[in-house]
């Protein structure tokens, strides 16, 4: 569902992404680990079509992101580190707006169902986003993805800044989506959460994918060790 073939992005003299080959199938959660500047966000930006690749190709459902921008965006949902919704609108209004501009129209009860499925409590549906915590905003982001019926989910450090409970809830939501067949690519620094939810884990450094594992084939301590070794940290 999410594929990159020799995806490369060069800014001036600097290679932000170097020949990245990645594949995330339906029902998989792929966690990209790496330090700041490793190329995680660049990968997501390329998959979203926000920037042009220098070479290589990014595919969503076997369609080139840059040649079929509108079609691929119909199939994917995106949740950034800080999900900035419209603070003067309520949760249900934000959901209605983002669904509406994507040409998906829902009744109020349907919108409420998406919010419930995303784990948001009913009493906050009609509260303005300005009163929401980061965790609650991320849940609205999940509701937007649910409403969109996204086949691919791109997450850019979504659990950064969340408390453990909210982070855990978010992880459970991802697993729920995974069971529905959504292919998820999550860029994160959070090794623990990656180990908890990922079906596959990749470690990036200097724009290159250095290591790849199956999530269930590696322990948290080993993951940490490999990560630190890849980053050339001395423990």
């Amino acid at each position: 569902m999410i594929t990159t073939n020799n995806l490369t992005k060069i800014y001036g003299e600097q290679k932000a992404l170097d020949q990245l080959n990645l594949r995330v199938n339906q029902g998989e959660i792929y966690c990209l680990l790496g330090a700041n500047g490793a190329g995680k966000t660049t990968t997501i930006n390329l998959l979203l079509g926000f920037i042009k690749p220098t070479s290589g190709i990014a595919l969503i459902d076997n369609m080139s992101v840059h040649q079929n921008s509108q079609e691929t965006k119909k199939k994917l949902a995106y949740i950034p580190e800080n999900l900035m919704l419209y603070s003067s609108l309520t949760a249900i209004e934000n959901l209605d707006y983002f669904s509406g501009i994507s040409k998906k129209e829902f009744s109020k009860s349907e919108l409420e169902t998406f919010l419930i499925d995303a784990g948001l409590q009913k009493e906050v549906f009609n509260k303005r986003i300005s009163t929401f915590s980061k965790g609650m905003r991320q849940k609205v982001g999940i509701a937007i993805a649910l409403a969109k019926d996204a086949k691919a989910l791109l997450l850019d450090e979504p659990t950064s800044g969340l408390d453990p409970k909210a982070s855990n809830e978010f992880g459970l939501l991802l697993q729920k989506l995974c069971k529905k067949g959504v292919a998820t690519l999550m860029a994160t620094h959070d090794l623990f959460r990656a180990k908890e939810v990922a079906t596959s884990i990749g470690i990036m450094k200097d724009g290159k994918l250095k290591e790849q594992f199956k999530g269930d084939k590696i322990s948290l301590s080993k993951l940490e060790k490999v990560y630190l070794n890849t980053m050339d940290y001395k423990s």
């Binding site: 965006k73 994507s102 937007i144």
Partner: peptide, 11 residues
């Protein structure tokens, strides 16, 4: 930052 979310929609 809301533009990134807008731009990720098929519009």
């Amino acid at each position: 930052g809301s533009l990134r979310l807008i731009a990720s929609q098929p519009i």
